[in-house]
């Protein structure tokens, strides 16, 4: 739906508007830019700070500003935002947030294979599982710009720590207010059954939700019996999620991250286990090794077994 858009642009445009209305917003960047960031830099020189290529300090300064009552956005490349400074996040955005109100939103750009040709240093296959491990951090993993943008507004009023993991490439919309989110996004519920089926259901997150939908709806192989659930915030409302999943006989998880170590697959496996469900379960994602092959995202997906043909192969 619509012209493909980059989530980052939608988020930064919205933040620009929010910063005009709310002088408690600070925007920190670890030297990461974006076309829509320029207007923020120009219009709010006192509330935009480039901390330099220094993610550890990015997080600590964000925590300090939040302690002083500011609403802080901390922006960096996703891999480095979550892994270079994981300990800073743990100490001052997770442990401290259990005692103090800290309105900080980390915005990580370039999850999964967004930086496809940049190789394994930039591939981001771990952020979801390691951030899920920390208490008190609400994670948004949007499938499109509409979801990402909506999260910004929600995040501003949520007095805790958040991590918004953005894809780096342009994508069309999977959501529309008319079709699937009449009441808007519910970041506490955290998921949406985008396509109703009755046999197998693909549970995915981020841009792979596009892949899930395409796999289940492509004209030649359209399958009415395949459902698609998009998880857009973590952790979602597990009771409601299980209720939806339980209407299917087979659950396929799909993610652009390492499998078996705490991502979507682990979350769903735990959920099934908690309900003593013996449902058929298939996990699709990146097996635990880094990819040195040079190539675009489609190529890397094929190498990793998360292309459409491979997904369809698992349909019952």
């Amino acid at each position: 739906m619509g012209v493909p858009a980059i989530m980052r642009d939608a988020v930064l445009q919205d933040l620009f508007l929010q910063m005009q209305k709310d002088d408690k917003i600070f925007f920190l960047s670890a030297d990461l830019g974006g076309p829509k960031l320029d207007q923020i830099r120009e219009k709010f020189p006192d509330r935009f700070i480039n901390v330099g290529i220094a993610e550890q300090n990015l997080i600590n300064v964000a925590a300090g500003l939040a302690l002083e009552g500011y609403k802080v956005f901390a922006y960096a490349i996703a891999t480095f935002l979550t892994m270079r400074c994981y300990e800073q996040i743990r100490v001052h955005l997770s442990i401290l947030a259990q005692l103090r109100s800290l309105n900080v939103t980390m915005i990580g750009l370039g999850i999964g294979m967004s930086y496809d040709v940049a190789g394994p240093s930039h591939h981001c296959f771990e952020d979801l599982s390691i951030m899920r491990t920390l208490p008190g951090i609400k994670i948004c993993s949007p499938a499109d710009s509409l979801c990402a943008q909506s999260f910004v507004t929600w995040a501003l009023n949520y007095p805790g720590v958040k991590y918004l993991r953005l894809d780096g490439k342009p994508h069309s919309l999977v959501y529309s207010v008319d079709e699937n989110i009449p009441a808007g996004f519910d970041f506490e519920k955290g998921f949406c059954e985008l396509k109703r089926g009755h046999k197998s259901v693909i549970v995915s997150t981020g841009v792979l939700t596009h892949r899930a939908l395409n796999s289940a709806t492509a004209v030649a192989t359209a399958r009415d019996d395949i459902g698609v659930i998009d998880i857009y915030s973590f952790d979602p409302d597990f009771d409601a999620l299980f209720e939806t999943i339980d209407t299917y006989a087979h659950v396929i998880t799909l993610e652009e991250g390492f499998i078996g170590v705490g991502g979507v697959d682990s979350m769903i496996a735990n959920l099934l286990c908690d309900h003593q469900s013996m449902k058929k379960f298939t996990r699709l994602g990146i097996k635990k090794e880094f990819l040195f092959d040079c190539g675009g995202r489609e190529y890397l997906h094929k190498k990793s077994g998360i292309n459409e043909d491979e997904i369809r192969y698992h349909f019952d």
């Binding site: 006192d46 600590n60 300064v61 925590a63 300090g64 302690l67 002083e68 009552g69 001052h92």
Partner: peptide
Amino acid sequence: YETVNGSLGHGPGVAAGMAIGLRAKNN
């Protein structure tokens, strides 16, 4: 006590954030 301690090296960065915040508030 203001911050979580024990893991060394975090204080100066958090303090810098607070100092910027105080300055912005004219505190």
